[in-house]
Amino acid sequence: MATGVKPRVKVPKTAAAGDSVTIKTLISHKMESGNRKDKEGNVIPRSIINRFTCDFNGVNVIDMTMYPAISTNPYVEFKAKVDASGEFKFTWYDDDGDIYEAAKSITVS
């Protein structure tokens, strides 16, 4: 289990119906690329977050496949269209099988 993994999400609190809102997400994760070697010269195995998805009220906003070239503590910024109040669900999938989640609500008038 990857330790110390903490997601952080920034979503506007309110928006007008039909708006496109900017969402910023950050998750603390080492993203071991599988290219590094330890002191003895052994390759440190790859262990990264390989997928990130965001849904709004059950409808998919974005589905991102991450490869080892994504930086440590992956930062992803994207836009979502909101037509009603509801909840964003964010999910990160780790190579080791862990799943990290976060949720944020938004009020749409």
Binding site: V59, V61, I62, D63, Y67, A69, V76, F78, K81, V82
Partner: peptide
């Protein structure tokens, strides 16, 4: 590096991230 699929609720086909 990355592959982004946009769903029905995407506001724009625009993304930012940080890479190695």
């Amino acid at each position: 590096v990355a592959d982004f699929k946009f769903g029905p609720a995407a506001g724009a086909q625009e993304v930012s991230t940080r890479i190695r």
